[in-house]
């Protein structure tokens, strides 16, 4: 594959193939927000530190500011818009898992992936996964409570 300048690629986002014109220098975050108008993934540090831009690529969390859009060709991308009433969203509401909300979509994606891949996660695993994201309102305890409430072993 060789892409130069404006190029047309197909990205599978939230179960749908989207044809989009990108430059190789565009990050996945940029394309999701500016080209596909999916603004759930937030731009924070753009340096891989805060996790506000986290999406799932093939069901694993990825900081979309550190991935080129062209790298995502052939992979399944899930943004917070694609969760569609997943149990973790209800759990965040019931456990007061957000305050200002800016970090919420990133945390939702990490927690959703954690529940999918490690439904029996213990405290060290939960800590390991959640440490990838920052909440400047420091609502960590509520977020932890939210994810623990859905780790039942039957998470879909």
């Amino acid at each position: 594959m060789h892409l130069s300048g404006n190029s047309i690629i197909v990205l599978n986002v939230n179960g749908e193939d989207k044809t989009v014109m990108v430059k190789p220098a565009y990050t996945l975050l940029h394309v999701l927000r500016e080209e596909l108008s999916l603004t759930g993934a937030k731009s924070g540090c753009e340096n891989g530190d805060c996790g506000a831009c986290t999406v799932l690529v093939d069901d694993m969390p990825v900081k979309s500011c550190l991935m080129l859009a062209v790298e995502a060709v052939g992979h399944r991308i899930t943004t917070v818009e694609g969760l569609k009433n997943a149990p973790i969203q209800d759990a965040f509401i019931k456990n007061w898992g957000f305050q200002c909300g800016y970090c919420t979509s990133g945390f939702l994606m990490v927690c959703h992936a954690l529940a999918m891949h490690k439904p029996d996660a213990d405290d060290p695993i939960i800590e390991e996964w959640l440490q990838s994201n920052l909440c400047r309102c420091t609502g960590y305890e509520e977020i932890e409570n939210a994810v623990k409430s859905i780790l039942s072993g039957n998470y879909k």
């Binding site: 060789h2 565009y26 062209v70």
Partner: peptide, 11 residues
């Protein structure tokens, strides 16, 4: 956002 253009090759 990367502030310059480049070509992408995937051999």
């Amino acid at each position: 956002m990367i502030p310059f253009d480049f070509d992408y090759y995937k051999p």
